[in-house]
Amino acid sequence: MNNNIVYALYDDDDILLTSVKKMKEKNLNVKEVYTPFPVHGLDKVLELKETRMAITAFIYGCIGLTFGSVLIYYIMISGEYKSWPMNIGGKPNFTFFKNLPSFVPVLFELTVMFAGHLMSLTYFYRCKLFPGSQETSPDPRTTDDKFLVEIEHENFKEVEKFLKTTGAIEIKKKDDK
């Protein structure tokens, strides 16, 4: 285990943002930041990669659309349904495309259902969120009003001195918890 971890606690999102910027400038290794709410611009400062959640939603949506089309095609046009042909409003099931207007609603709903649910599941999986998952924040106040930065350090004294100038309200080592 790496014990060279220091926690700096802040009580304001703007101060946090400028401090993290300064830490990055000083080439400190910022391991993680815990915040009570999404701080606008923090991901840029931390140089986090752009998340690809939206892309997954798009892919899942395409899968849903394909699934819906195949399902409806099988049931209404090609498959076993043939033995029970139905003529609804003068529209017998000749081809998929001639009946498409009445398939659109279900195709749309299936697209949304796949995109919405599978993306949410991906989100839970990627963030390791599930019932029974344990909280990892070192300080419970980070869900209330405090912002915690986890930094790897070489020399505690030096880092502490620097962190104090940035406006941290509490600084402590990981082991003296």
């Binding site: 409003g89 003068g90 529209k91 207007p101 009445s102 659109v104």
Partner: peptide, 12 residues
């Protein structure tokens, strides 16, 4: 467009 078209197409 779809609402107008589909309802008229459907009711025929």
């Amino acid at each position: 467009w779809f609402s107008q078209f589909m309802l008229i197409w459907y009711a025929n």
